[in-house]
């Protein structure tokens, strides 16, 4: 069973604010999911190459490095919650990114 602290950490990483009820419910549900996936530990996969997908598709690339501008800035900024007409405006981001 996940601890409430673990649930808090996952919720924080996803920027979710959870009520006490939700925390307990998600602890149960997340634990069930992990237990289900844990069954894979019983399978010998030592001869299976690391698999990122089960689909056969590989190496789909854009052959021509050609510019095609799909949207104007006005169209792009229509999706901005706030903007100054040039940029997306967000609450001051004070810590540096990595």
């Amino acid at each position: 069973m996940l601890t409430s602290e673990q649930v808090n950490r996952v919720a924080h990483l996803a920027r979710l604010a959870l009520t006490e009820d939700e925390k307990q419910r998600y602890a149960r549900q997340l634990s069930a999911i992990l237990d289900y996936a844990e069954q894979l530990a019983n399978v010998d996969v030592s001869h299976v190459p690391p698999t990122a997908t089960v689909l056969p598709v590989r190496s789909v690339v854009r052959e021509a490095d050609v510019v095609n501008q799909l949207l104007t800035r006005d169209e792009v900024l229509k999706n901005a919650p706030r903007s100054d007409g040039e940029s997306f405006e967000v609450a001051a981001a004070i810590t540096e990114s990595s």
Partner: peptide, 20 residues
């Protein structure tokens, strides 16, 4: 397919749904 050469350009003129 947005232009990768945006240095010095006006903000957000090389933007599409993918890179936004």
């Amino acid at each position: 397919t947005c232009s990768a050469n945006g240095f010095g350009a006006e903000p957000n003129v090389h933007v599409c749904p993918t890179c936004a």
